[in-house]
């Protein structure tokens, strides 16, 4: 069967073809722009506190700094979230959990690293129990600071939204956690 839509040929299994067609449809400009706009205002981070930066993250999503106005609502289950925010030091034991949480999140998913500890160890750079999260995940935004102020968190959300709206992310590509242990 030759599809009337330009550019793709659909053969074989009906269900698979339908999925392909819908994917193709989503990637086309007006729909794609709409989709990106929607994603950018529903960045829901999974509630995954890894270290002391969590205190500032909590402050960012609370009344004074109110990150919820960007459509940013910390949520409990990784199945319903699309943003992993590593809040500070990632220890070796926690890295295992982080990988599992990341794998459970649906596409498209984004990663923000918060705090110098998550960037490159920070004050704990010579500790024997930490990992560098950027070796495990594809990272979208880095927030430096120890701890970063809540304003910095808010700014990182805006930066990520802009990135999403400009279609600078790739769906389902390079989103497998890397590295052992």
């Amino acid at each position: 069967m030759v599809c009337p839509l330009m550019g793709i040929v659909l053969v074989g299994n009906l269900e698979e073809s339908a999925r392909k067609a819908s994917r193709w449809f989503l990637e086309k400009p007006p729909i794609r722009n709409l989709r990106d706009w929607a994603i950018s205002f529903s960045l829901w981070p999974v509630h995954f506190t890894t270290s002391c930066c969590g205190a500032e993250f909590a402050a960012a999503s609370c009344p004074r700094f109110d990150a919820e106005r960007f459509g940013f609502l910390p949520f409990l289950s990784p199945r319903q979230t699309n943003l992993l925010l590593i809040e500070g030091t990632l220890t070796r034991k926690m890295a295992e959990a982080a990988k599992i949480v990341y794998q459970q999140m649906p596409e498209p998913k984004f990663v923000i690293l918060m705090g110098v500890c998550a960037l490159d160890g920070g004050i704990f750079h010579n500790s024997y129990n930490i990992v560098r999260p950027h070796e495990l995940f594809p990272v979208d935004v880095f927030i430096p600071g120890c701890p970063p102020r809540p304003e910095a968190v808010a700014r990182s959300i805006i930066m990520l939204q802009r990135k999403v709206r400009n279609s600078k992310y790739i769906w389902g590509d390079g989103h497998e956690p890397k590295g052992e242990d």
Partner: peptide, 21 residues
Amino acid sequence: LLPPWWDDIPPLRKDYKVKVE
């Protein structure tokens, strides 16, 4: 406190070296 798969020498012994800044 250490991860369950730790198999090095106990870290607070003096011969366990970490990088000195």
